[in-house]
Design a protein around this nucleic acid. Structure first.
Lengths: 342, 342
DNA sequence: TCTGTGAGGTTAATCGTTTAAAAGATTATA
DNA sequence: TATAATCTTTTAAACGATTAACCTCACAGA
C-alpha cells in the first residue's frame, strides 16, 4: 500500500491540499472545525509529509552532509556523535559519507593525489544530494582550499583547520599543553621532559609552544635534552623514555603527546623497575580508552570532541541562514583527566 | 548563482529536456551529434542532476537509513564503516541517525519505555526522509518486532538479532568460543577456566555452549568451579580471576568473554606474581584497541565488523529490489588474533 | 442599498526531473 | 509513387508538496 499523500488527506477531509498544508504548517488561520477535520483525516490515513516533495518545492533539504576521513578514528566517532545530536535536535538530517582514509596518513605525499580525488568525489556526492551544508571532519589539517572553488555550499571544518577564510572549530593545542605543564608544576615537578610527536606536525609545534610558555611563566626552562620526538606510536614512547631515563639528570615527570606513546613510556619505566607515580610521573594526551586501563590509570588531557561536533553543527546552521557572515574560528579548551599516574 | 538545471542545458544545446535526460541516462538511442552537443552543454554550465527532483519523480531516493544505538560504541563505528563503503560503491547514500543510547544498557528495564520511544522516533524520522531501506545497528539484542508493524520499508539488523522473521547479519558466538577453546587445547591447555559475562545475556549463553561443546569433543569437561560470571567490566575480571587462582587446582588458561575483563584478569594475575604466558595463559574477546597495548599483548577473538556492515548493506539492497524474498539470517565467523598472552 | 473589510478557503503555478505517447523525418518496400 | 517501417526527437503529464493571488461570503458602516 503506497504512502498516503496530502491529496488523500484533502479528499477525506473535503478540503483542498492548500488547506491541509496550512493546517500542518500553521501558515494561515483556519476555522477550528476545518482544522479538526483535517487533523482527524491525517491520523486516519496515517499521513506523513513527503520530505522529498517538500525539499524540491522549498529548495532546501534540511540535510547536512557530514564528510569524515574515517569513522574508525576514535575522535571522529565522538565528534560525529556530537554533530548528529545537535543536528537532529535542530531538525536537520545527517547524510554521512566516509572517505576511508585511515591508513597511516603521514609520509604518504605521493598519495596526496588520491586523497584529493577521494575527497572531491565525496564533496560532489554530497552536493548532488543537495545538502544544505557540509561539515568536514578530518583528523589532520588538510588544505582544502581547492575544494572550495566550486563550493556554493556552506562548509565548516571540525577538528582540523581549514584556511584563513574558513569557518572551523577545533581544540586548543597550545593552551592545553600549557595547562598540563601547570598541573605538573602544581604537583611539585620541575624537571619535566616531553615526548613529542612528529617534529613537523602542527600539534607538535603548537603544544611545544604552550609547554615552553608555561615553563617560562614559572621561571623554569625546558632543557633541549628533555625534548624527544616520537612518531605517535607505542614503540617510540618506549625508546624515547629509555633515552630520557639514561640521562645524567633524568626528569621527574614525562609529558607524552599522546596516550599511545605514554603507554609505551609507562612500560619502559616499569621494566626499568621504577614506580609510577612515586619515582616518576607520566601523563598523556587524547584520553583514549586505553588510558583508563593502563596500570596505573593514566592522567591525560581529554579532547572536547562532543563540543567540537556540537559547535560545528551550530555553525553550519548559522551559515545556512546567514550565508554572508564572516568566517568564525572557534578553539575549544581541553580538560585534564586526573588519574593515578602523577 | 543558482545551480544549473536540465532546462538550462536543454536551451543551450537547443534540444528538449527529454533529450538531455535521455543522454544522461542512456535511456534512448540518440544521434551522435545531439549527444555530443548535449554533453558539451552539460560541462559548459557545470550541470549536476538534482537528486531531489529525481527522487520525487522516481519514487526512490537511493538512500539507506542507518540507525545506530550509539556510534561511540567501538564495534558500531567499524560496522558503519563497512556499511558506508559498500553502500556508496553501490550508488546508495547513507543517512545516519544516532540514538545516543550508550549509557549502560543493562538492568535499566524501567527505562525500556524511553528506549522504545527514541527508537521509534528514529525510525519515523528515517521513514519521513523516504529512505529506501533501514539498517539497524544495535549492540544488544532488542526485540523490535513492535517496530515492524507499520513498516513497509525493508529493514535489516546488523550485529544484533531481530526476530525469527527478520533479516539480520551477526557474528558467531558459539563457534568462535569453540574455536578459541580448540586453540587453547592445541597449545596444550586442558584446565581452562572461563570468565563469562552477565549470566542471562545471549552472548554469555551461546559462548558457554560453544565452550562446552569443544571441551566435550576433546573428551574433557569444564568443572563448574571453572565458570565464573562477571559483568563485562574490568573490575569483575580482576575479582573473578583472584577467585580462580585461589582454587585448589587452578586453571592453566583463562578465557575471558571480553577484553576488558581479560585486562582485569591480566592485572590480577600479575599482582599475584605470576608470569604470562609462562605460568598461565589468558585470552579475551572483541579485539578492542586495548588488547594490543596490554603487557603482554592479548590474544583475543576479533569480531568480523567490516564484514557485518558490508553484508548488511548487500542484504538491504537485495531487499529493495526484491521485497518479497525470504528473510535471511547470516552468521559470520570470527577470527583469532594471536598475540603473546598464550 | 451599496461598499469595504476580514475571515476562511481555493486555484493553479512551481520546484527539476522522468517517461509514455505522439510526432516528424528519413529510409525501405511494394 | 504510395505506404510502411524505422529512427530521432518532442510534448506533456506526472511525482507531492508550498504559496502568492484570487475568490466568496458575511457582516459593518454609511
Amino acid at each position: 500500500m503506497p504512502m498516503a499523500t496530502m491529496r488523500d488527506v484533502a479528499e477525506l477531509a473535503g478540503v483542498s491540499t492548500a488547506t491541509v498544508s496550512h493546517v500542518i504548517n500553521g501558515s494561515k488561520k483556519l476555522s477550528p472545525e476545518t482544522t479538526e477535520r483535517v487533523l482527524r483525516a491525517i491520523s486516519q490515513v496515517n499521513y506523513t509529509p513527503n520530505t522529498v516533495a517538500k525539499s524540491l518545492r522549498m529548495g532546501q533539504t534540511f540535510t547536512i552532509g557530514v564528510l569524515v576521513e574515517d569513522i574508525r578514528g576514535l575522535p571522529v566517532a565522538a565528534i560525529v556523535s556530537g554533530i548528529s545530536e545537535t543536528l537532529s535536535k535542530a531538525g536537520y538530517k545527517t547524510i554521512f559519507h566516509d572517505l576511508h582514509l585511515l591508513e597511516k596518513l603521514y609520509n604518504q605525499y605521493e598519495q596526496i593525489g588520491t586523497y584529493r580525488e577521494r575527497i572531491n568525489e565525496g564533496v560532489l556526492l554530497l552536493k548532488s544530494s543537495n545538502v544544505d551544508g557540509i561539515i568536514y571532519v578530518a583528523m589532520h589539517d588538510r588544505h582544502l582550499d581547492y575544494l572550495l572553488d566550486p563550493m556554493d555550499t556552506p562548509l565548516v571544518y571540525a577538528y582540523s583547520h581549514g584556511t584563513e577564510n574558513d569557518t572551523y572549530v577545533t581544540y586548543s593545542n597550545k593552551d592545553s599543553a600549557a595547562d598540563m605543564i601547570r598541573y605538573l608544576l602544581s604537583k611539585g615537578h620541575e624537571r619535566i621532559a616531553v615526548i613529542a610527536g612528529h617534529p613537523h606536525s602542527y600539534p607538535t609545534g603548537q603544544r611545544l609552544l604552550g609547554i615552553q610558555m608555561a615553563m617560562q611563566q614559572a621561571a623554569l626552562t625546558l632543557p633541549p635534552e628533555y625534548i624527544r620526538y616520537g612518531d605517535w606510536e607505542y614503540e617510540s614512547g618506549k625508546t624515547q623514555t629509555k633515552a630520557l631515563l639514561e640521562l645524567p639528570s633524568p626528569p621527574t615527570a614525562i609529558f607524552a603527546m599522546n596516550d599511545l606513546m605514554a603507554a609505551g613510556s609507562l612500560s619502559a619505566i616499569q621494566t626499568m623497575g621504577l614506580q609510577i607515580p612515586k619515582d616518576i610521573a607520566i601523563v598523556g594526551f587524547d584520553n583514549r580508552e586505553i588510558a583508563s586501563y593502563l596500570q596505573p590509570p593514566l592522567t591525560t588531557v581529554a579532547l572536547p570532541t562532543p563540543a567540537i561536533g556540537a559547535k560545528a553543527a551550530l555553525h553550519i546552521i548559522d551559515m545556512i541562514s546567514n550565508p554572508y557572515a564572516h568566517p568564525v574560528r572557534e578553539i575549544i579548551p581541553c580538560s585534564i583527566i586526573e588519574r593515578d599516574s602523577v
